[in-house]
């Protein structure tokens, strides 16, 4: 019998995040190997070790659009995004968890960590882009 407390939920969220992202990457990898192309790039340009096909040339929106065409590269990129989002979700759940315990010092601490993550994901790329 499991206790559905916050620790259990957090552990579960982490596990689901990792499993989903790995499954997406395995599907993507398999499609890419079979089809030999992804998002308009040839297999050589995607797979060569000095490939120029990295995260700067593929906007996330373009990647997500490829999902409906069973594009391997799209699945891989979605998998990578889910993987990065997993710890972010973990921190967000941490804020809720400390709030439920009414531990306000740790609510503030966890919010600071969350702000740092948001800085890295949204603010710094926007600033570097200027």
């Amino acid at each position: 019998m499991v206790r559905w407390d916050m620790d259990y939920v957090i552990g579960l969220a982490l596990r689901i995040g990792v499993v989903v992202s790995i499954v997406l990457m395995i599907i993507g990898g398999t499609l890419l190997i079979i089809e030999g192309r992804g998002l308009g790039y040839s297999d050589y340009s995607i797979m060569s070790i000095r490939s120029r096909v990295n995260t700067t040339v593929i906007p996330p929106i373009t990647a997500l659009r490829g999902l409906s065409q069973a594009d391997g590269l799209s699945f891989i990129i979605l998998g990578l995004m889910v993987l990065i989002a997993t710890p972010v979700l973990r921190v967000a759940l941490g804020i809720a968890s400390f709030a439920m315990e009414r531990d306000w010092l740790y609510v503030v601490i966890t919010i600071v960590v969350f702000i740092n993550l948001m800085l890295a994901i949204f603010v710094i790329p926007a600033l570097l882009h200027l």
């Binding site: 982490l14 990457m25 990898g29 995607i46 797979m47 995260t55 990578l80 710890p87 890295a120």
Partner: peptide, 27 residues
């Protein structure tokens, strides 16, 4: 995990993540 997610997000923007290599290594 949280530290690496922070770094990865900036790496993502800078283009240091090559999807094919990164997915094969993650698996």
């Amino acid at each position: 995990g949280v530290t690496a997610a922070t770094g990865s997000s900036i790496y993502w923007y800078l283009g240091y993540i090559q999807p094919f290599i990164a997915s094969a290594t993650a698996i």
